[in-house]
Design a protein around this nucleic acid. Sequence first.
RNA 1: GGGCUCAUAGUCUAGCUCGGUUAUGACGUCGCCCUUACACGGCGAAGAUCCGGUGUUCAAAUCACCGUGGGCCCA
Length: 772
Amino acid sequence: MEPKISEKAWNPELEKNILKQWEEDKIYDFTPEENNFTIDTPPPYPSGRPWHIGAAAHYSQIDMIARTARMAGKNVYFPIGIDRNGLPVELYTEKKHKIRMRETERGEFLNLCRNALDDLEAEMILIMKNLGISGDFVNYYRTDSEEYRTLTQSTFIKLWKKGEVYLANRPNNYDWVSGTTIADAEIIYDDLQTKLVYMKFKIKDTDQEIIIASTRPELLCACRTIIVNPEDERYSKYIGKKIIVPITNAEVELRTHHSAKQEFGSGAVMVCSYGDQNDVVLFRELELDEIVAIGLDGRMTEVAGEYAGLKPKQARTKIIEDLETAGFVEKIDDIVHRTPISERSKIPIEIIPMEEYYLKQKEKVENIKEIGNEITFHPTMHKQILMNWLESINIDWPISRRRFYGTEIPIWYCKNCSEPHVPEAGKYYKPWNEACPIANCTKCKSTEFIGEERTFDTWMDSSVSPLFISKFNRDDEFFNKVYPVSIRPQAKDIVRTWLYYTLLRCEELTGEKPWSEAWVMGYGLDEKGMKMSKSKGNAIDPLPVIEKLGADTFRFWSASEINHGYDFRCNEQKIESTKKFLSKLWNVSRFLSSFPVIDSGTPNASDKWILSELDKLVKECKKGYEEYNFFIPAIAIREFTWNVFAAHYIEMVKARAYGIEFSDEERDGAIFTLHKTLKTILKLLAPITPFITEHLWKILYSNESIHKQKQVDVENIEEQTEITKEISEFNSIVWNEKKSQNLSLKDSIKMEIPQILKPFEKDLKSMHNLLD
RNA sequence: GGGCUCAUAGUCUAGCUCGGUUAUGACGUCGCCCUUACACGGCGAAGAUCCGGUGUUCAAAUCACCGUGGGCCCA
């Protein structure tokens, strides 16, 4: 019989038609019912080309979650969103058009950003679609849309009215390149080369001096005290004495504090506003008055005297020269210093007192721990990232940013008395560009207002994604059916930001957890295990890879190579070699396509054996799918299909399936079993490689999409693992024997079949052409 | 300094919970082979001090302890 499938290999070009068919048939449409399964899909940020290959792998796996749930009989809601708020697009736009944000008219700048986002977004959507992501692209959302920003602002207004938001003037992490305050969560650390300067400080009214080592001599003008460890005997006689600061000649007191490390530098530390976070703590604890030495422009202020106007780094160089000239320097060491830098602009942050809005979070920590414990983490170990972060929270969340492309903070201030006014929730407000919707100041009745110019931290937007997709405040019926949503898939590196902030915000607004499960994935690394980044030039563009090899190859690579939760290496050659398995599957199907599909048959010993192995496979895949760990089914299916089913079973039953020297009943037993096995393999594999399985399924078995089928159930057939081993060993022996005798595989040979394999005798004889 | 996590052939990986096989499989490498599904294939070969040390045990990749090295996070 002619095979229904004539091509010799899987052609990834076919994916395009299949994709079109799915789109036309709307096979993934969702209307809320019982048994909803909602995915809080991470909205990717279009920050520039190329998109990350690790992200493509990540979204492929999120799609596997959706398809797994669908085949488990759940009603899947799989929204797609694009995150468009924040700094990266502003930097991208500034660079692209060679303009400065603050020197450009705000409305015009926002338009340029929007256009840039549209271009980058289009490519991301294209990649996601080509990957076979079964999400809702028709109603995809943007976090900068009027609807989304209305939600962000409404949730802020709610919290403002509850008294959860306050304004405070505090030392803040300031990134002067992007001109904004940033949260602790956005700080990363880098080891940078710097100079540790050992300076001589005179003790007042004596001719003695002490040595103080510092990496920030330019902050001498902001020095308020000197501390030493209380147990440091070298300095005990100077405690309480006045010390003269070099250059400025200011007098400060020498005090004790346990945070001074005896072994670092000279053991004596100058405390300035603000060299680092420890200085902030000390100023608060010792009740010192701060001196603002660095301004918002990132330059030294007038208190720095002749250094005013210089950048801290320039001032440092100059002051070191001056200190040396004046004989205040004992020595200078070159050291590597762990420096806090801004995650976004990659420059060292400064700590500067500024007035910013804060959202209360400190008193919420215990609440969040509780709801965190109600959530099932996949893998369990990553829950620890959240718990560690919760332990370390010690300040509230600064939520205002001095940037343009973000959701506006909806506040107007009375021009006369400065009283802040927050409008009614439910509308999108742009205070920098719109009149205040409130007629009179509630305090002084004045009619003139000034709009707030700042925007929110982008996590204020993305942290309400579960509320947005479940139509919070917009459609109560929908919301009640869908919220809390089922699962939050996301990457490991944003647990302390996106995951945490979502818990915080959703708990504040709904009193409930946002999802039942959190699924946390590792990072994509390059071939050598380094983190991929555009600046290092080791980033791989996913688009050409997918276009060349097809989505299924890429997806199968992603499943079979990425152990869930762990970091993974991306290697193009390895992705390519994955294609071989799809070829194997294709050719197995091609072979089976030459036999009629029959619904029943009487299995013989060989058939029963492969069916028991198949059932074992179903069991294993089920286990993997239940944990959304696709590594388990991918590896198991490949192993079974290639090394058991194709290598041994098909070879054993080939002659029987053709009906050569076998009865019709024996033949049908083989054909039935072959099809049952392939059908099962296709279904098991469908969530991972949706295209090829759909194609083969439709050619061989049904007009209805494989993605509408229910997953195969475990039958609990008794295991025959021992037989598998015996068969493969026996086959190996025969092949080796023929080889050593220089025989072709079809030549006949005389071999003794082991006792345990007697039930398989007839099949084995025909397979190897064994003589009696 | 603290926390999390990892360590098995050139690369990825199974096994470790609950100790006993010749340490699994894949990619890559090499050799042979067109056998009526597949040369994008088949068969076979080479390739691992299971990070190191100590202990428990008749027996350790597996258990315990002490180290070393990598990654990430926090201070």
